[in-house]
């Protein structure tokens, strides 16, 4: 009874204290930004190609490792704040391009063979690729570990030490306290959304993509090279996955490790399904929803109202299940997509 009163007290505290509420909202936005970044590549690829890319998380993990390596290699740890951020953004661009290239190769050489087959075969193929890629990275990481000291950096520790001091810790503005890194995350999230939205709605290629999403045959009959569109979208989706890894590398909650692949993949699935398969708008809204619920869950855990440590993961999959029961198409899903095998 007393326990319940305490929870009620905390809740009251949250909603009667705007500064606490705003702090939780900012954290929610930051989490939502990360979710947008890890999920939108998956959405783009699924929306056009009906391919559920199980290697998506592996791409993010590769992005994170490569970013860590690059940033250490250029010695970012010793640079000033502005310089580090510039390097960071350049690294992000590089990783985007590298992973886009990887995605292109994968689409052209492997996935393209299976478009004619039921979707399960693309799931199987990308799953196999994911297993292989993840184990390959583990090999590499352990190998570096074996030769410790011979190389410039050890891979087995997260790359947190490269985070500039200005981005560590928290800042108080008035009564509101927020983590510095969250500002960068929210900015990147906004940039991601704007960039993808512009690509889809303001470019000729984006128009082709949207036409192809709706009716592949009709698009082809109008002279649109749908195959090439597939390749480009797969490349962009893979690139975004990799770029997301760059910011995850700096976020203390995620950081770099081989299991990051699965840790990214499963929430990304949830976001994509909750938002509605193939709907970019849905992905953005679902990211916000999940990010906010995640932030409030974390808050509840911090206040001691909930003592269960896995609360955020638990809630993410809880949202998935509840959404599929109540509204199987997700928030903005389209009838017919994802129904077949």
């Amino acid at each position: 009874m007393i326990e319940h009163l305490l929870i009620l007290g905390d809740l009251l505290d949250l909603f009667t204290s705007p500064s606490r509420l705003i702090a939780v909202l900012i954290e929610g936005l930051a989490k939502a930004s990360l979710y947008v970044m890890i999920a939108s590549g998956l959405t783009l690829i699924f929306g056009l190609m009906d391919v559920i890319n199980f290697a998506h998380g592996a791409f993010t993990m590769y992005g994170a490792y490569m970013a860590g390596g690059l940033i250490l290699a250029v010695g970012a740890a010793e640079m000033g704040f502005a310089m580090v951020v510039v390097v960071f953004l350049l690294v992000m661009l590089t990783i985007f391009l590298v992973l886009a290239l990887v995605g292109t190769v994968m689409e052209v050489s492997l996935i393209r063979r299976l478009y004619e087959y039921p979707p399960i075969f693309q799931i199987l193929l990308t799953f196999g690729i994911a297993i292989t890629l993840e184990e390959f990275m583990r090999m590499f990481v352990e190998f570096q570990g074996i030769n410790n000291g011979q190389y410039r950096f050890g891979w087995e520790t997260p790359r947190l030490e490269t985070v500039p001091t200005a981005l560590r810790g928290a800042t108080d503005i008035g009564l509101v306290r927020f983590e510095n890194i969250h500002v960068l995350e929210i900015l990147l999230g906004v940039v991601t959304i704007v960039a993808i939205w512009t690509f889809l709605n303001r470019t000729r290629y984006g128009l082709f993509v949207r036409a192809g999403v709706e009716d592949e045959e009709m698009a082809a009959a109008l002279g649109i090279n749908v195959k090439q569109t597939f390749t480009v979208v797969f490349a962009i989706g893979s690139g975004i996955a990799g770029a997301a890894g760059v910011i995850l590398m700096w976020d203390p909650l995620w950081s770099v490790s081989v299991p990051l692949a699965l840790a990214v993949l499963l929430p990304a699935f949830v976001i994509v399904i909750v938002g509605g398969l193939g709907s970019f708008k849905g992905t953005v809204v679902a990211s916000l929803l999940v990010g906010m619920i995640d932030a409030f869950g974390t808050w509840a855990f911090q206040t001691g109202a909930i003592t269960f440590t896995g609360i955020d993961d638990m809630m993410i999959f809880g949202i998935l299940v509840v959404m599929l029961i109540l509204q199987p198409r997700g928030l903005f899903g389209v009838e017919g997509q994802g129904d077949h095998g």
Partner: peptide
Amino acid sequence: DTHEVAEAGIGWIPEGRRMFA
């Protein structure tokens, strides 16, 4: 490929219209 057929100058007005709705 179908898009090459289209580029050759053949257009299709399909049954059911098939708008990009």
